[in-house]
Design a protein around this nucleic acid. Sequence first.
DNA 1: TTAAAAAATTGACAGTGTAAAATTTACAGT
DNA 2: ACTGTAAATTTTACACTGTCAATTTTTTAA
Lengths: 204, 204
Amino acid sequence: MGRRKLDEQEVAEFRAKLMDQALILFAKHGYRDVSIRAIALATGCSAMTPYRYFENKEAIFDACRARAFERFAEFHEQIVEAHPHPVERINALGQGYADYAAAHTDAFRLMFELDQPSEPSNHLTLMGNRAFDTLRNSVRDAVQQGYLKGEPEKLAHLFWATIHGIVVLDLTNKLTYGIDKHALLESFFEGEFTSARNTPEDSK
Amino acid sequence: MGRRKLDEQEVAEFRAKLMDQALILFAKHGYRDVSIRAIALATGCSAMTPYRYFENKEAIFDACRARAFERFAEFHEQIVEAHPHPVERINALGQGYADYAAAHTDAFRLMFELDQPSEPSNHLTLMGNRAFDTLRNSVRDAVQQGYLKGEPEKLAHLFWATIHGIVVLDLTNKLTYGIDKHALLESFFEGEFTSARNTPEDSK
DNA sequence: TTAAAAAATTGACAGTGTAAAATTTACAGT
DNA sequence: ACTGTAAATTTTACACTGTCAATTTTTTAA
């Protein structure tokens, strides 16, 4: 006696359906300008139904971010497959990172928003790491094969930080002195900055 | 006949008063969770009075961001004065950037939020540039004096992007592999990454 | 003292997140 | 087939939001 409880798969399916719509809306309009009612409407359920599948709006957002990271990671994994050479692979990953941010700006914002509405869930952290792992592994390989020197973890993180910095400064319109994203990426990949450090004695 | 119109200074004073409170609230709770009514209450005026001094909530936020950038720039300018040597100055600016982000995280978020509610105003851009100018000039000096080699604009931008990248990845809890902000900053300042690039032949 | 204009406040509205109540749905036992 | 019941869903309701419009207060010049 009593209506059958939704099994795990059914719940997962509806959650996915909600997230598909939510991701589209969040990416298009941002967290602030998407209402749960709008997500419900797009999904074709009533306004309060999402609350049965997610605790609140932040939980939906969090799930969408994780999904965005998942796609981001898949994109990186494709690049890895397409570039067997470690150094080329690293550069392709960096370029891909920037390209992805440009092509999917809204998803990128979702992922790297400074003003995160909640602490990252474990799943979100996992998906975030998965994308970075492609770079981490590539740098490790490059070091092992002698293409790079240094502590692989630090190298990978610094590489990431630099690309990320270039991308977000560009995204927030902070590059206003004629030096744009492309020039910076090019310089970085050429190692112009990295080889520029020396002492005054050297330059005399 | 007719009440005296507020002169420019009076308007500026009240705007400043509003912004003082708004900046505190925005920094503490973020754009989303601060209402104009709350700003008005903190300022001691009625709920709709802010609308006489700013077009809307975004305009208040924009003004606050510009003010945050102004303080950020002043902080950098103090660092410049305290460090006469170009290379030390550059490193101090980088370290200061990270320290400021840690000490005034909320203000930093305000300034570099990806999800900006509006296009940056001219004044905001100006204040943003003012902070970066300290680094730009320092790099230019360092290059002129032979401490650095390369195109100064690109060097300065790349330096900024790297520090910024490190800071924001840390701020958004993306550094989860035991390599933290401090290790990355240290590596960066030591040039560990920058001197790591060479060909396999070199390492044999 | 009064007319009027600027400033400030109040009232109103559509839209928000979400808690609680009401309702629909679909199954187990008779 | 019917019915009791529990799960799923929808409806209702509320406090709060940004902001427009109407109103009231304040302050000045005549």
